[in-house]
Computed example of a mutant assay.
Amino acid sequence: MSELTLPPEPEPENAGPCPYLDTEFVAEFNGQRVGEVKTSSEEPHPTCFFYRPDGDLQLQVRVYVGEEDVARALVDAAAPVETSNPTSQPTGWEGGYESNDDGAVYAVFKGGNAVVVTTNQPQSVKARTVATEAIANLRI
């Protein structure tokens, strides 16, 4: 079996808004004001970067639409099966979540779709809430 090549890490390249998340929603559920929103150049599903007013990144939402093996591998890279807590929320999506001193990650996939949310907040429930909202707003 050949080694999967994952897409490169997305970079913030364009001014927002995020097509999946309202800035006010992110501010409310991540618990910090949003100073700026940027997106990556991937179309039609860019990664969204939400920054605090001081310029530090507070939340990132990466969306992948493509091959199931790649979607699963992206989720496992963000929230490794061996170390993260398993999740199946929202219904039909699978993945994991974990927290550390730098924040939390919530990563899930369904078929060839993956959503990975990283936050500077240590409570994984914040990342899960944002992931669930992004998934509800995806046009896939």
Rank of each mutant, 00 (worst) to 15 (best):
Y64E: 02
Y64C: 11
V65I: 11
V65E: 13
G66E: 02
D69W: 00
V70M: 03
A73G: 07
A73V: 10
L74S: 06
V75A: 12
V75Y: 07
V75N: 08
A77V: 00
A77D: 12
A77W: 00
A77C: 00
A78M: 03
P80Q: 10
P80F: 08
V81T: 15
E82K: 14
S84K: 10
S84P: 09
S84I: 09
N85Y: 05
N85M: 14
P86K: 11
T87R: 09
T87S: 12
P90R: 04
T91I: 11
G92S: 09
G92H: 02
W93L: 11
E94F: 15
G96C: 10
G96M: 09
G96I: 07
Y97G: 12
Y97Q: 14
Y97E: 13
E98A: 14
D102L: 13
D102C: 01
G103F: 08
A104C: 13
V105P: 07
V105Q: 03
V105G: 11
Y106A: 02
Y106V: 07
A107I: 03
A107N: 04
V108T: 06
G112M: 09
A114E: 04
V115C: 09
V117M: 05
V117P: 01
T118W: 13
N120M: 05
Q121M: 09
Q123R: 11
A127M: 06
T129C: 00
A131Q: 06
A136N: 14
N137G: 07
L138P: 01
